[in-house]
Amino acid sequence: MMLPQNSDRAQESGHLGCPGCGEALGLRLVLEIIGSNAIMVVPACCASYVDGIWPSSAARIPILHVAMGTTAAVAAGIRAALEVKGLNDTHVLAWAGGSGAFDSGLQAISSAAERNEDILYICYNNESYIDMDIHYFTSGSNRRGGGAHADHRRQRTQKNIIEIMAAHHIPYCATACVAYPDDLADKVKKALSIPGFKFMHLLSPCPTHWEIPSELSIELTRAAVETRIFPLYEVEDGTKYAISVLPGTFVPVSRFLSRQGRFANLSAEAIRQIQNRVESQWRQLQRRIELSRGGVSGQVKAKPEKQTAP
């Protein structure tokens, strides 16, 4: 088969992402920063499909596709091999979906973080597999969830993966999203400049699962930040917290929730509870920032102005 052989781009067109795919976009943005001297590990997740089907790949750098829970361990192995070969300039990128990081992959992540392996681990979270949507649910029933899977979906708050990683005292961890590409680029650059284990939680829209028109991919991801559902911040050495993108005004969570089909059945009460939770989490984050400034009560932002849902 004749395949295109030369690529000077981070990611080739022709990949198998759905229209409006946040994962494909996020990966391209990240790869553009990382450059060509890197090796990537991808566990079972959308990316293992999106990248392409043998004998082709869409990424400019080599990828090792591996089993779900193994990403960090495999990445550590690649780093080990590069070290013994003296190829220390080569970056190792772990690129895993939400489940690969939050679920079965967490054990290996924890271990690699504890050993401070020189890896950049990015969990692109499209909220599709780990059912983060249920995170926002109190009723546990959404349109699709009301069917056969309802009882099996998780009905709890999603774990705070950044807090988990910060507790490992790794040199750098951060949240990012594809709607703020400059912020994402800055964080990737920063992470690459730091030796050791770096973790990023990248919110990555999925029109298919979010049940949104594909053109709203970016807008709703931005809404996640503006509503404070997904604050953009970073933590250095597990203690130094800083907000990197501060939304101008407090936007009600409904701005994020109401336009997604997956949240179609959220009751007003459920939305109110989510709003309270988001505000409480935001206050916690602010306290951590204050603490990391040495307890000085430097308010990041005044008390949120209450807004009614549109």
Partner: peptide
């Protein structure tokens, strides 16, 4: 139209990029 087994590498290692896939047809 597909390559015979002997023309394939021993392991599933990619041979080129996805550019052949004209995803514009989805539009």
């Amino acid at each position: 139209h597909l390559p015979p087994v002997n023309a394939m590498p021993p392991l599933p290692i990619s041979q080129g990029w996805m550019g052949w896939n004209r995803t514009g047809e989805w539009r």
